[in-house]
Design a protein around this nucleic acid. Structure first.
Lengths: 271, 271
DNA sequence: TACGTTCGGTTGTCCGGACAATCCGAGGCA
DNA sequence: TGCCTCGGATTGTCCGGACAACCGAACGTA
């Protein structure tokens, strides 16, 4: 069991460019798994397939070879191969069709949906995000936060208010309330990175969030803060975030300049 | 194999209300599977567990009995039980912890994320949605739609403009462009139900969507149409929808009255 | 030609087993 | 008392096999 299988995956092109050639037009896809690696086999395979799709080695609409043969070539069992494929189906990259095969989904899509972090989003977009911490203190929870965090109204919470900027221009006003003993927050760190990244660093595994996105006109004070005219349209977002134990880790109530920001994400249908 | 196992699932309450009692406090959960049913066994189990959680029979934080014992009690194999549990983990209802067990996630969460349909959402909320079809014709695609539908600018598309109302009040202005030969659209049907429901009825399986949510001030014409003042904040949403073959089935560019509507959904972290 | 049937191919479901990785608590040791 | 080790419990990964359900295409028949 020391060898590392390294095979070419035959892929058929439905388009059929060469009519006289056999249906299966092998594309030299170098797949291999390392049994000595601590990384699960199905995960290794899944990652390699995803990379192949992302790099265009597997063109949209093309069929993957059948599971049984693929398993044989890689020296894996069919359940393991299925697990790898299933992971990509869940991600929306592949589609299974009984009696037909598994094919790469067309699409220009393919993108994060993710529990998005404004900081990470901006950074990924090449904007250099900056943060000004306006308030960081322990105060009484307001009504919305108390309901979201499931504590009594007026109970102590950690209150955080930030202004997020790119290129020196304000983009959003972020107001968070957190359980008081969840995390040690420091203004210095908060100006250097995002809140979610700090949470992950503290060993908190984010799991899901419930959020509401709306819009309203800016009040004079909000306009002043964000550099807009009073009455300008603002995007509002309220979000309650849960970690993997179901604990509420954060309630946020945010304002975004509609002229400079929009939410962008992908939805998958849950059958 | 003709019997229908019907067992009680022991559930331990971490809270431990009765200290002197054994740790496992069995809750009379009636689980059963019907091997003669065409419904897959894992799906039957999955649905029953979900129902139990939804009805509060399985309280948040409580542990499910271990997989092996549960499999034995139900007369199923462990992989089948795992498949059922995995489905609920994917839905965000359960959390697995190696060495500990599987527990019901705390939370007030639990809600649709879904590829939401405005019509269905309103109907589910008890609003009685109504629709006025303003335009339904074949025209040249505009720039955004052409890019989204991957056709040449100016190519023919089916254009649909609707006004959505509840209680006689406008809520949203919906503008869709579709591939011309995808679906036979009739104004009458469109006034009675939603677009997505018509698509599903025509055998189209919706798969995923990419959308952008922003805000802007209403133009005089838009304000007139929606019953707002010019300059009032409007929510905007652009959406490209794909079916399970990866085909683009719709490009929509919609306007919502921010005073009467907000987007509400749940996000799951994809690890 | 048009239609129905059959058949091969592929994924869907299910089983039973084996071992590894991880967590928590109990017990031992200093 | 406090720390460390160990072991039981539970999920994670992987295997090999079996049969069912479904799709498309080739084939045969009217």
């Amino acid at each position: 069991m020391s060898g590392q299988p390294n095979v070419s995956l035959p892929v058929s092109r439905p388009g059929g460019y060469a009519p006289h050639v056999a249906k299966k037009e092998p594309v030299d896809l170098q797949l291999s798994v390392d049994r000595n690696s601590p990384v699960p086999l199905y995960f290794q395979l899944s990652q390699q397939l995803e990379a192949a799709i992302e790099r265009g080695k597997l063109s949209p609409g093309s069929l993957l070879g059948n599971e049984i043969e693929l398993a044989g070539r890689l020296g894996l069992s069919r359940p393991t191969v299925r697990q790898a494929i299933q992971a990509l189906v869940d991600k929306g990259l592949l589609v299974r069709r009984r009696g037909i095969g598994t094919q790469v989904v067309h699409s220009q899509i393919r993108r994060p949906l993710e529990l998005s972090s404004l900081y990470d989003d901006l950074e990924a977009a090449g904007q250099r995000p900056a943060t000004r911490v306006l308030r960081l203190e322990t105060t009484a929870a307001d009504a919305e936060a108390a309901a979201a965090l499931a504590v009594a109204e007026g109970a102590e919470v950690r209150l955080l208010e930030r202004l997020r900027l790119t290129h020196g221009e304000p983009v959003a006003f972020l107001r968070n309330q957190l359980p008081p003993d969840l995390l040690r927050l420091e203004a210095g760190e908060l100006e250097r990175t995002g809140l979610y990244r700090l949470m992950r660093g503290a060993g908190i595994t984010l799991h899901s969030a419930r959020q509401t996105i709306g819009a309203r006109a800016a009040s004079p004070a909000e306009a002043e803060l964000l550099g807009e005219e009073p009455g300008a349209p603002l995007l509002t977002m309220q979000r309650v975030t849960f970690d993997d134990t179901g604990r509420v880790v954060e309630y946020g109530s945010h304002l975004y300049r509609a002229s400079r920001y929009a939410f962008d994400f992908q939805l998958l249908v849950r059958s």
